[in-house]
Write a protein that binds this DNA or RNA. Structure first.
Lengths: 172, 172
DNA sequence: GTCTATAATGGGATAGAC
DNA sequence: GTCTATCCCATTATAGAC
């Protein structure tokens, strides 16, 4: 609390005029990185376009947004255990919903013959772990556009195998 | 410390007959997950075989070993900041060395025309983040062989694009 | 709404008996 | 080598003046 206060230019005790507890601060950050995150990014999955186009757009926005809110994301992950049971469950639910929506667009891509994975749920987890790992090492001097390009390729052409041929072909 | 002691069936104070401090315990765990990890897994990169074969073997062993030491790995990550500066630097160095060795075999695969990535360092980070993400969600009821198979495919055929054709072809 | 001063709690670590 | 009892310190949170 003292560090947070110092970063804002006040003393630790004064923080309690703005938040009731440390948990409330952490919860507010976690909500921005989950509920607000979902609201901001998921709509792109409902636009026109093929599953691979929609997922590529999501991945690019995901990477750029991670870079923009890197510290908050780290806090949201590391301090998850400091939340109340209710708040933690809420946050986990939002993360799970995001993961499910990614799984669904992957499954759509598989049905369309664009993607080549056995288990869309597992592939969604692998892709999201790969993306979210960025927050642990990203520094300010990175070329974000190139970074996002690379990860779109890793995810869509790589893990999901866009363009790779499997057994079948014509969906259904 | 009290929880650790309880898990061993003794009282908190008795732990200090075996370790000088909590930091020493955390450091011991971190060393197993980095120094010992490197010694155990990296030799496979020096065996006979093509880069993709050697990397596939490493990825499979990596995933299975993550599952075997899941909790220690989580501790090693989450409590990294609890280590002394020296110990933390040592642990980070071992992790960096592992990452560099993975980068090198990826670069070898690119030179051989097997892999298709622009930046082996970035690809190594992406692959390792994808693998290490497993420790956050793995439960005991998973089919580890199938899990390892999937991640070998995600990494070697996916991110690294084994079999994908790029511009050139005959290395050098 | 910020400050100083101060509770109150939790957890790492020590002392000394057995 | 384990125990009980205790210390010690960091940190969250509160009280009350300004």
């Amino acid at each position: 609390m003292r560090e947070i206060a110092e970063a804002v230019g006040i003393k630790g005790a004064s923080l309690y005029n703005h938040f009731a507890s440390k948990e409330e601060i952490l919860h507010a950050i976690a909500l921005r990185m989950t509920r607000d995150w979902d609201e901001r990014h998921l709509p792109v999955l409902d636009t026109e376009g093929t599953p691979d186009q929609r997922l590529a757009a999501l991945v690019r926005a995901h990477v750029l947004s991670l870079a923009e809110h890197r510290v908050e994301h780290l806090v949201s992950l590391r301090e998850l255990s400091a939340l109340t049971d209710e708040h933690r469950a809420q946050v986990v639910d939002y993360r799970r919903y995001y993961q499910r929506r990614v799984r669904d667009v992957i499954a759509a891509g598989v049905r369309a013959g664009t993607f080549d994975v056995e288990d869309p749920t597992r592939a969604a987890i692998a892709v999201l772990d790969m993306l979210n790992g960025i927050v642990w090492w990203l520094r300010d001097d990175h070329d974000l556009a190139a970074l996002a390009d690379a990860y779109v390729t890793y995810a869509v052409d790589g893990v999901l195998g866009r363009g790779r041929t499997r057994g079948g072909g014509t969906g259904s």
